[in-house]
Simulated scan of single mutants.
Amino acid sequence: MERSVSTMHGNAITLVGQELKVGDKAPDFTVLDNELMPKSLSDYAGKKKLISVVPSLDTGVCDAQTRRFNEEASKLGADVVILTISMDLPFAQKRWCGAAGVDQVITLSDHRDADFGQRYGMLIKELRLLNRGIFVVDENDVIRYIETVKENTNHPDYDAALKALKAL
């Protein structure tokens, strides 16, 4: 399934994969953590999840997005996990987190299989990057909030995502 709903620097891009809706069961996925170990949605079972999707941590907006959620994470409680998923290599994610002092957000890489990108409809066909967006998933793995950012150089609506997460 393909759809053109976003842009990158004003140029139309094509998103590949399943288009999800609020109320859908969140699909499981396999990504890699910073130690090259596979992780999936089921590894965070029973937790409320904010999934922050970014094209690359090495860009200004992605950096700011990840830092913002890292700041918020300590205020959310032990029953909440914030995952940042990108196509960056796990080594690059680990280096970036160390340099940025990011220690509350879990960074995960979709570079190997683009499994998350395809299952969540966030894979950019032309660039093999992920479209910027946010998913809030409850403790029963039901999607409660989705934002697919229309222009990837823009910030997501942090306040709306955090409000949806806190409402769970």
Rank of each mutant, 00 (worst) to 15 (best):
E2W: 04
E2K: 11
N11Q: 12
T14L: 06
T14I: 08
Q18T: 15
E19L: 00
V22M: 00
K25T: 15
T30E: 13
D33C: 03
P38E: 15
P38F: 14
K39Q: 13
D43F: 05
D43P: 10
Y44E: 11
A45R: 05
K48I: 06
K48T: 00
K49S: 03
L50N: 05
V54F: 14
V54S: 08
P55L: 08
S56Q: 02
D58S: 12
Q65F: 07
S74H: 12
L76V: 08
A78V: 11
I82E: 09
L83K: 00
L83N: 03
I85F: 11
S86I: 09
P90M: 15
F91L: 14
F91Q: 09
Q93R: 09
A100Q: 14
G101R: 02
D103G: 07
I106P: 14
I106Q: 10
S109L: 12
H111R: 04
H111Y: 13
Y120D: 02
I124N: 09
E126F: 10
N131F: 01
I134C: 12
F135L: 06
D138T: 03
R144M: 01
I146P: 03
V149T: 05
V149C: 03
K150V: 13
E151W: 04
N152E: 08
H155R: 04
P156I: 06
P156F: 07
A160S: 12
A160Q: 08
A164P: 04
A164H: 02
L168N: 00
L168K: 00
